[in-house]
Structure formats: C-alpha cells, structure tokens
C-alpha cells in the first residue's frame, strides 16, 4: 500500500520534472537563433552597410539602404491603409454585437486571420500586379490585408471590455454617436487598440511571402511606390540563397537589423499596453 503511494508520488514528481524540462527547453531554439543571428550579423553592420545599396558580386561595400527605405515605405503605407479601416471595423463589430452583417463581418475577419500569407500574396498579384505590373503599392496593400484582422480583433476585444456605463454617461450628456465613440470609448481603450496596431506592424515587418510577387525587389534606391521596391525581408531571402559570401554577409547584417526591429516592436507593445492603460 505504502509502496503504491510512493510509486504514485514518484510518478507525479517525475511527470512534473518532465514538464519543466520540456517547457523550459522551448527557450533553447529562440536563444540559439537570437545569439547566432546577432553574432553573425552585428559585425557586418557599419555606416557603409546602412547607407550603400547593392553592389555586384565581388565588389566590396554593398549595403542595404534601399531595402531599409523600401521596408519603411511599404510598411508605412500598409499601416496608413490598415489602421483606420481596422479600427473602424473593430468599432463596428463591438457596437453591433448581434446584427446579421456583424456576424458575417466577424466570420470574414476570422477567415482572414487564418489565410496563409502566400495566399494574400497571390491575390494581390492577381488584383494589382497582373494589370499594373510589380509595384511597392501592391506590396503595401497585401501587407495591409494581413494587418487588418489583428487590428480589428484587438480593437473589438478591447472595446467590448469597456463597461456600458461609460457609453451611457456620454450619451446622457447629449453627445452624438460618433463623438461618444471617438472621444470617450476609443480613448479609454487606446492601450488595447495601440497594442493591436503595434503587433500588426511587428507581424508584417518580417513578412516575405506576400512581397515575393508584389513589391518584388529592386537593386537600386527607390522611393517610387509605383515601381518595384526592395524590402528587408525580401533582401534577406534573396541574398541568403545565393552562394556568394559577400551577399550572405549582407543578409546576416540585414537579419540582425530586422530581428532587433521586430523584437523592439514587440517589447514596446508590452510597455505601451502597461503605460497607457486607462484605469477603469
């Protein structure tokens, strides 16, 4: 009897130990990747690297300035499209919990959230590249479609959590609907909405698949949104699969920058959520 109890306790402890080992070992690949990328990349970053553009193989001093600029532009315009639409759609869903349109709209957002990024790329390619050719715009639009579900869901969830009394207080002061939403409800939920926006930016900053056949890539510095444009993740992909050491080095430097950029966005999101939280 007592042996049996001991056996059970031992089994329990054993399982706990196994869980702890398995769970904590999940940290290993992330740490390994971070360390490797930073070690391989940090030495490649210097002034030339940040200000020069692509040079032919063999010539030293190539840089990623064109990709940095391209990423900033493509992300900026994607945000410009997705943020207002996403927040407004989130408001629509939280304000219309039961209408039939809201049901279908919510279902659509759910579907959109699960669509693989490569499929979004295909669709942007069909809609924009087939008729107009490769352009940075088509990349921005593809990325903005990927941002939408993240912004919409976080806005909806945040606004739903706000107490109804807040809304009533505003209506009772004779405020019109749009002011109630924009001046009271949105400011009170701003931390949740912002964190959704930041997460969506972090998410698309590293996206490559939708850009493969939209923004396409370009070896020169360009700010023309109607033309193809290089972006950071695409540059990494392009250089990583070449056999040339120079270009691979550029890719390591670019990976390092992209990684730091994305991780900073994620950490910043956490800080903002905490700092800007409106105490209810």
């Amino acid at each position: 009897m007592s042996n049996h109890v001991k056996y059970r306790i031992g089994k329990s402890t054993g399982f706990q130990a196994l869980t702890i080992v398995l769970a904590t070992s999940c940290v290993i690949p992330l740490v390994a990747i971070l360390m490797y990328i930073i070690k391989a990349g940090i030495t490649k970053i210097n002034w030339n690297f940040l200000t020069n553009v692509e040079k032919p193989v063999g010539e030293i001093g190539g840089g990623i300035a064109h990709a940095l600029m391209g990423s900033i532009l493509v992300i900026f315009f994607a945000s410009l499209i997705a943020i207002p639409i996403g927040i407004l759609c989130g408001i629509f869903l939280s304000e219309n919990k039961k209408s039939r349109l809201a049901y279908w709209s919510r279902l659509s957002v759910d579907i959109l959230q699960g669509v693989p990024s490569i499929v979004i790329g295909i669709v942007a390619y069909i809609w924009l590249v087939k008729p107009f050719g490769y352009s940075a715009w088509s990349g921005s639009i593809a990325l903005s479609i990927m941002m939408l579900p993240i912004i919409i869901r976080s806005t909806e969830e945040t606004l739903k959590m706000l107490p109804d009394t807040l809304r009533e207080a505003a209506f009772a002061l004779g405020m019109p609907f749009h002011r109630v939403i924009l001046k009271v409800i949105v400011p009170c939920g701003i931390s949740g909405i912002l964190s959704g926006v930041m997460l969506s930016v972090a998410r698309i900053a590293g996206e490559t698949a939708p850009l493969l056949f939209t923004a396409f890539g370009y070896q020169f510095f360009s700010t023309n949104m109607n033309k193809p444009m290089e972006t950071l993740p695409h540059l990494i992909f392009k250089y990583a699969i070449t056999p040339y050491k120079d270009w691979q080095d550029l890719a390591w430097g670019a990976s390092c920058i992209l990684l730091i950029w994305v991780l900073l966005l994620n950490i910043l999101t956490k800080l903002i959520t905490r700092r800007w939280k409106v105490q209810l």
């Binding site: 940290v27 993740p233 990583a240 990976s255 994305v262 994620n266 956490k270």
Partner: peptide
C-alpha cells in the same frame, strides 16, 4: 517563459529559414 514563447511567434519566418 510566457514572453519567450510569444517571441518565438514574433521572429520573422525568413530568419528561421536563414538560420
């Protein structure tokens, strides 16, 4: 652990590929 696991999802897939 929670934050680390969340960060796993944050790393761009092209970087996973390169690594």
């Amino acid at each position: 652990l929670k934050n680390t696991v969340e960060l796993i999802a944050a790393v761009p897939s092209v970087i996973y590929g390169f690594w």
